[in-house]
Amino acid sequence: MEFNKNNFEENKKYNVKSIMAVLLFGGFLSLFNESILNVALPVLMEEMHVTATTIQWLATGYVLIVAILIPITAFLIHSFNTKPLFLSAMLLFLAGILFAVFSTSFTTLLISRMIQATGTGMLIPIMMNTALVINPPEKRGSAMGLCVCAILVGPALDPIVSGTMLLFFNWKSLFILPLILQNGLHTSSLTSALVLLPTALIDRLLTPIAGKIFDKFGGKVLIPVGLFIMCIFMWLLSHIGVSTPIIVIAILYSFVTIGVALSLSPSQTSSLNQLSIEQQTDGVAITNTAIQIASAIGSTLFIGLMTAGQNKFLNSISSGITDEINLQALYSGFSYSVTVAVIVIAIGFILSLFLRRDVKKEAI
């Protein structure tokens, strides 16, 4: 897609809503597919006779391929028209799904996942870059809010789908909060998923609203407010214990999601608004690559911290280890992990206070 000063005038002949709908649907499908297979890892490990370390590559490899393809796609966007790139990405994604259906070994399934990831890695920057190009500056916040919503809703719905599958097939989840709900409060997989349902709804409803607020007031206030809300309620989550009711955990986590919705999309839009339209393709690639890398290491990092906190608690016990002590250790590890997350968010909040006001939105 060519970038020029008359871009927004030329785009009037296109149906922007239809283009956005197609882009958002493609982005939702690809991101939904990214983590949905996690619930099947234990069964796949048994059926394909591979170790847990090996089977994890079905998830980790997917994210890494996506992270690699995003900056490569920035180059492709500069070199080729958007429509054939989008169609190629969708074909790769669908071909990967088709090959996965007929996979009978770990190797073929892994190759299928990598093909899917290639399509996903192309779809994300194509979606976000096109949304920036076909929408005028005064509507970018709303457009980016919809794009981030499509990115968030897919993974947010995964626990719901996974919880239903876990209810019938007795598979295990790999998320931190479900670990507390299932292992700490002894809830069923479906109950854990339903506890997380409000977060999916909040993501879906508030992210576009945050985009509209950004269009009117900018990100200088919105981003710090979102990070402050996250910091406060993550700190409260770090203090939950064995006696904490499940409804309290659900409410606290819902407020965390409100903070995410208020800060994630506006922070991306604010950063991209500092760039010229010619530079925005590269900006989209950089921001989304950073998000994918963070996604790849985030869960592993914080689950590792939780395990370290558990072990530290258990090592401090001189008497015999009982079920009650193991439960206390689980909460101690969760608290340790979430406390580290609070520190990271607090640093982000402090840095957000130094954000300058958004550049004046002028027609390009």
Rank of each mutant, 00 (worst) to 15 (best):
E2T: 15
F8Y: 15
Y14I: 01
K17C: 01
L23F: 06
F25G: 02
G26K: 01
L31M: 05
L37M: 13
V39T: 08
A40M: 03
A40H: 01
L41G: 06
P42Q: 02
M45W: 00
E47K: 10
M48L: 06
V50P: 07
V50Y: 06
T51E: 01
I55R: 03
W57L: 06
L58F: 06
A59F: 09
T60L: 12
G61W: 05
V63A: 11
P71W: 06
P71A: 01
I72L: 15
A74T: 04
F75H: 13
I77V: 04
I77P: 00
I77C: 05
F80T: 05
T82C: 05
P84D: 04
P84Y: 08
L87R: 14
L87P: 07
A95S: 14
V101W: 12
S103I: 04
S103T: 08
L109S: 07
R113M: 09
M114I: 02
M114F: 11
T118E: 08
G119R: 01
G119E: 08
M122E: 08
N129Q: 08
N135Q: 11
K139R: 06
A143G: 07
G145P: 07
L146R: 02
V148H: 00
C149F: 02
I151Y: 11
G154Y: 09
G154T: 03
A156M: 02
A156Q: 03
D158I: 15
D158S: 15
I160A: 13
I160L: 15
S162Q: 04
G163R: 05
F168H: 14
F168S: 10
L177A: 09
L179N: 14
I180H: 05
N183Y: 13
L190T: 02
A193H: 05
L194M: 10
L196E: 00
P198E: 10
L201A: 08
L205P: 00
L206F: 11
L206V: 09
T207I: 05
A210F: 10
K212M: 07
I213V: 15
K216Y: 10
G218Q: 04
K220Q: 13
K220P: 08
P224H: 03
V225G: 02
V225K: 07
L227S: 00
M230V: 02
M230N: 10
M230E: 13
F233Q: 11
F233R: 12
W235R: 08
W235P: 02
S238M: 12
G241L: 10
P245C: 00
I247L: 15
I249Q: 02
A250L: 13
L252T: 02
Y253M: 12
V260K: 04
A261I: 04
L262F: 06
S270H: 15
S271P: 06
N273K: 13
D282C: 03
A285G: 15
A285S: 14
T289I: 10
I291C: 05
A296C: 01
L301C: 07
F302M: 01
G304Y: 07
L305K: 03
A308H: 03
A308W: 06
Q310G: 08
N311A: 00
S319Q: 14
G320W: 02
I321D: 00
T322A: 00
L330C: 10
Y331E: 09
G333P: 01
S335H: 03
F349N: 01
K360D: 14
K360N: 13
K361D: 04
E362I: 06
I364W: 03
